[in-house]
């Protein structure tokens, strides 16, 4: 469905700890964002006057009818203001934007590798798969600094999606990076002749590691990237992503945010 810009109001702003919050917005009528696929995103801007000009990009966590929800972490000037939003306050939404992950496939197991606030596209992938009766073909690998970095775990449990957790401080799951658990799982799949692919979203250093592991195991690896963007629809050209090919760059907003790991001109 074509993207649109529309006004919405905060329906709920739920603080999840560690600065994380899920922000639910409601528009006057059903919005095109309801058709968003996992990995697609919206640009959000509050009544920020002239100080903060540009909207912020967020993966859609969930959307249905008039409502849409995003997950964010209070970090910069925009997200700190959003963290403090109260029900009824206005937001301008543009979306759905970008190209998301492929549909869940009954023949392929999706290994969902999430880091911190990179969870939403993988959360939606698992939701879509569960609704299609494919929860058994989804496995979550979720990492963060500490216990508070791992949110919305109950949803995966409810959907019946297996989860491997990792924290840098060891407070939940295995101690260390979530990527540590990925390579053995790919070895296991290779030995068993199981078809798998890696879908990942999170901080760039994590994505670099996921890409290297995926490429080394010759498994399709799809990475959902984040870049600074002013518009989100292919005009500002700020969100260039270095790629191999005829042209040195593609755009996170219109060509992505999901890119095949092989395509990226990354370390």
């Amino acid at each position: 469905m074509t993207a649109a810009q529309f006004e919405a109001r905060v329906a709920a702003n739920t603080r999840l700890g560690g600065g994380y919050f899920s922000l639910e917005l409601e528009a006057e009528e059903p919005t095109p964002v309801a058709a968003a696929r996992p990995g697609q995103f919206v640009m959000l801007r509050g009544a920020w006057g002239r100080e903060l000009l540009n909207p912020r990009a967020f993966s859609v966590l969930h959307a249905e009818g008039k409502r849409l929800t995003i997950l964010a972490k209070a970090y910069g000037q925009g997200t700190r203001r959003m963290w403090a939003l109260r029900p009824g306050e206005p937001m301008t939404v543009t979306g759905p934007l970008g190209v998301g992950f492929p549909d869940p496939d009954p023949e392929i197991t999706d290994l969902l590798v999430a880091g911190g606030v990179g969870l939403p596209p993988l959360h939606m992938q698992a939701r879509v798969a569960a609704a299609a009766g494919l929860a058994g073909k989804q496995e979550l690998f979720y990492g963060g600094r500490d216990r508070e970095d791992l949110v919305l775990l109950a949803d995966f449990e409810r959907w019946g999606v297996a989860a491997t957790l990792a924290t840098e401080d060891g407070s939940v799951g295995v101690r260390g990076y979530v990527t540590t658990a990925l390579a053995p799982r790919l070895e296991q799949a290779r030995a068993a002749g199981e078809r798998v692919r890696v879908l990942s979203c999170g901080p760039t250093p994590m994505l670099v590691a996921v890409r290297q592991i995926g490429l080394a195991h010759e498994v399709q690896t799809l990475l959902c990237l984040e870049e600074n963007m002013a518009c989100g629809f292919g005009v500002c050209l700020g969100c260039a992503v270095p790629v191999h090919g005829v042209k040195p760059y593609r755009y996170c907003c219109t060509d992505g945010p999901v890119f095949d790991a092989r395509e990226l001109r990354w370390p």
């Binding site: 000009l53 870049e227 600074n228 700020g238 969100c239 260039a240 760059y249």
Partner: peptide
């Protein structure tokens, strides 16, 4: 083809 990234950043009122 344009410049390397990052190419943009927000500043106060601009």
């Amino acid at each position: 083809h344009g410049n390397p990234l990052p190419r943009i950043c927000e500043t106060a009122a601009g």
